[in-house]
């Protein structure tokens, strides 16, 4: 894909129909009102063929790295009161996630329970964390070398019969 183009290119080429890129926002009146996060040069891309279906990364608006790229797969997320209040306003997977996380679960669990690719779940949960719809608890740095924590895990496992 052409990622850079001169202003002259933009003037000459017609804009592609955004509905062809992200089919699921192409509802009547349902246009994407977010500021465009794609590189501006993508305007110069040639028209796309009719899509055969929604591919996983279209759910993430084309982003493949989460807002916070280091979000661990075991990080716990839980819906906030704001998330509960706004759930009905959210689109598709965002809403599913907010409804799913009434009890805290791991990012990997979000992926598994909603049938999402792990990378997609990570991007979408990151968005929701940033928007304040999910609270997150990540493993502290150095946790795996924390003797007190390890000893607690040992005691917890020993209790299993």
């Amino acid at each position: 894909m052409v990622l850079s183009s001169t202003p002259g290119d933009d003037e000459r080429r017609p804009l592609p129909d955004p509905g062809l890129i992200r089919p699921y926002v192409d509802e009547p009146g349902g246009v994407d009102d977010r500021p465009d996060e794609r590189p501006s040069g993508s305007n110069g891309a040639p028209p796309y063929p009719e899509p055969s279906g929604v591919r996983p990364y279209l759910l993430t608006g084309g982003r493949v790295r989460p807002v916070d790229a280091s979000l661990e797969i075991e990080a716990q997320v839980k819906t906030t009161s704001a998330g509960r209040a706004d759930a009905v306003r959210l689109a598709y997977e965002y809403r599913d996630i907010v409804l799913l996380c009434a009890q805290p679960i791991a990012i990997a669990e979000v992926a598994a329970r909603l049938g999402l690719h792990l990378g997609v779940a990570r991007v979408l949960t990151s968005d929701l964390i940033e928007a304040g719809y999910l609270a997150v608890r990540r493993p502290d740095a150095g946790l795996h070398q924390n003797k007190k924590i390890i000893e607690r895990v040992i005691r917890g496992l020993q209790a299993i019969r």
């Binding site: 349902g30 704001a82 959210l90 689109a91 929701l128 964390i129 928007a131 304040g132 609270a135």
Partner: peptide, 19 residues
């Protein structure tokens, strides 16, 4: 059915309290 996508920069910021 879903008039707008979530805008990460909308009303509520990250420091949202109450939970």
């Amino acid at each position: 059915p879903y008039p707008q996508l979530l805008d990460p920069r909308s009303e509520r910021g990250p420091g949202e309290s109450g939970d």
